[in-house]
Design a protein around this nucleic acid. Sequence first.
DNA 1: AGGTTGACCTGGACGC
DNA 2: TGCGTCCAGGTCAACC
Length: 282
Amino acid sequence: MPELPEVETIVRGLKPEITGRRLTFVAVHTPSVVRGDARAVEKLRGRTVKTISRHGKSVFIELVSAGSPLATLRVHLGMTGQLLFETADVALARHTHVLFRFEGNPRELRFRDIRRFGCLELVTPKTRPNLGPDAWQSPPEVIFETLRGRAGMAKAALLDQTLLAGLGNIYVDEALFRSGIHPRTPLGRLPLPKLRALCDAIRLVLGESIELGGTSFRNYVDIEGGRGGFKGRLRVYGKHGSRCRCGDIIRRDVVAGRGTHFCPSCQPRLRSPSRPSARSTP
DNA sequence: AGGTTGACCTGGACGC
DNA sequence: TGCGTCCAGGTCAACC
């Protein structure tokens, strides 16, 4: 599942391949993967890639054309989306939905998505999705202030892209484990040092994963079809039933509607708010 | 308003 | 072998 580190890896791979190049060919084979008018995407032909960037799990490709306003193509990979560079003679893999060719680049860019949760979309500043600050590129202080005092369970809040953009199920579970926070803890009740530890853990897991080219749990591959190396560093995600380093057994519960992996010993529930004890000093 | 559930979609795992 | 069922989860909508 492409989350922030996987999308970052893809964007880093795409930058030298397409930046400054003119789009010579666009073919949408599956119009339903395009939000809005699929023909508008095909009409990008002739434009030149000015920039390619990432915000959260979204890829943004800005294309310019003399005398026309800037066009911004947003690509979201959903759960099984892939952006692959292949020479045109390589047979199209099943579930390949959109093709792009660029002047001076012998390979073509293919958008493939088995489950079609991903999408392409032309966006304007007004129709850009409402995303919170990027979980990797934002200064730690911004992330701290973003999460501070928020209502709702930690798991749900960290998955909320309008709050903080980029984390998905894998990295939320890993960051909560590394900071010793139970997924059901209300964010607003975290002691500030604990919240600080959570922010540090988010940076730690994202940085480590980006360095290793992301996590290939099921379908994720980079633009060359290569797999990410972070899977071996996972400590709780997908490890329910096996033993944590502390000796306890890692559990899997459904929290905020998602499979959630945690160690009950390393991530204890917060005690109920202290209230006067009936049995205190006589 | 926080929380849960279902829909979307397909492949893979599992049980009979 | 082959069929039915369930599960995975990013995001959105509908509901309690």
